[in-house]
Computed example of a mutant assay.
Amino acid sequence: MLDEATQSLSRPQRRLLRRIYNGRTTPIIADGKPFLTYKAAKQYLQGLTPEARDAAYLEMKEKGK
């Protein structure tokens, strides 16, 4: 099991995700899964390995622009 430090998102990552998902009406597709809310995206990212988390985060960041 991964320790809490490796599972958590950094503060800048959390802030950007909140901005991306605030008031969103169309989902962002990352890793083939739709995410419409910050909470759903955060839970998904925290369940990934650090490398996969970074890749999925970057995909969300690019598609959220």
Rank of each mutant, 00 (worst) to 15 (best):
Y44V: 03
Y57C: 07
I29N: 12
R53I: 10
K39N: 14
R53N: 06
M60H: 00
K61P: 01
T49Y: 08
I29P: 04
E59Y: 03
Y44R: 02
L36V: 08
E51D: 14
L9Y: 00
I28W: 00
L16N: 12
A55H: 07
S8A: 15
R14T: 13
L36N: 05
S8C: 15
S10M: 05
P50G: 04
L48A: 13
K39I: 13
I28M: 03
A40Y: 05
A5Y: 08
L48C: 13
A55T: 12
E4R: 14
R11N: 12
I29V: 11
T37S: 04
Y57N: 05
R19T: 08
A52T: 15
S8F: 14
R14G: 10
E59N: 06
L17E: 03
Q13F: 05
F35P: 00
Y57P: 02
A5M: 13
K33T: 10
R15C: 13
M1I: 11
I29F: 14
A40S: 12
E62M: 08
A41L: 02
I29M: 12
K39S: 15
A55Q: 07
L58P: 06
G47W: 00
Y38T: 03
F35C: 01
T6S: 15
K33I: 10
Q46K: 11
F35Q: 01
M60P: 00
T25F: 03
M1D: 09
K65D: 10
A41M: 02
Q13W: 05
Y21M: 04
T6M: 15
L16V: 14
R11Y: 13
P27Q: 06
Y38E: 05
K65F: 11
A52D: 15
S8H: 10
P34L: 04
A52W: 13
L36Y: 09
G47V: 01
M60E: 00
D3R: 05
P27N: 07
P34A: 04
R11G: 12
K39M: 12
D54Y: 11
T25E: 07
Y44E: 07
R18E: 13
A30Q: 00
G32L: 01
A55F: 07
L45Q: 03
G23N: 08
L48P: 06
I20Q: 04
R18A: 12
T26A: 09
E62W: 08
Q46V: 11
E62D: 15
G47H: 03
S8T: 14
Q7K: 15
R53K: 10
L9P: 00
R15G: 12
E51C: 11
A55L: 09
A30I: 02
E4P: 13
G47E: 02
A5W: 06
A55R: 06
G23K: 04
G23S: 10
L36S: 08
